[in-house]
Amino acid sequence: MIPAPFSYFAPDTLEEALSLLGEYGESAKILAGGQSLLPLMAFRLVRPEVLVDLGGIEALSRYELAGGRLTIGSMVTHRTIELDHRITSRCDMLREALDVLGHVAIRNVGTVGGSLAHADPAGEWLAVALALDGRIMVTGPRGNRDVAADGFATGWMTSCLSPDEIVTGVRLDMPGPGTGSAFEEVARRHGDFAVVGVAARVSVEGEAVTGARIALAGAASTPIRAHRAEALLTGTTLSGPDLDAACEAAASETDPVADLHGSVEYKRRLARVLTRRAVSRAYRRASAPA
């Protein structure tokens, strides 16, 4: 199994990369870490004529935690973030999501931007970005733009990027004091894509929830926010009935597709159960003294 032939470019700068995309248009694909793209090319499900490898563009491999915000360049590997204790100690959701994202050998090579741009419905990064009010940074011939994570994916493995644009990074709001977060997923085998995954962030004052974010992976054609469930949680103290109602709402906001891994009913059930686990844990963490 080997990809169909293609022309390969490894530009040193974003400008060069953009000009290559401008020149080759839809016949070109961007190569980030390749952990999703190369298997697709090996199966010849994707046959780009041109690959533009971003691996040589140093500016995309930087990340920064400043104030309450984490800015990650698109070519930063999953493992780089996973091993940065300053980040994982501040965001349980990110730590838990990275722990189940593929295997170490994949996280060593796979990139944050590649995962976002790939827009897999079960992708952990996009779910995390949804739950952390992420903004995806994009550059193109018409300049730079920031896209809210909510709305970035427009359909199954499809994003709002145009073929001449490049994801340069993502900005995430780190949970601050009084805010807890968690990530839960069920996969058939360790390291597989989630059947369903849930990212939750809960802010608490006293015992009351003052804000919640719930994002689900694998539960629709794109990762989604469960807006109704978030609204139902807000103002509650997470009593049994309140939590039941929110989890029920989250499940009803999903639109899963039946496949080898489970029926629609099963995935909805997972959405309900995993929302309960993730939200409860995030709430506990928010309430725990720092």
Partner: peptide, 16 residues
Amino acid sequence: LLGGRTARSCTLLAVQ
């Protein structure tokens, strides 16, 4: 091992 860290050599191009 690529730079001392595991990588899957089937999903990595030699040019990478």
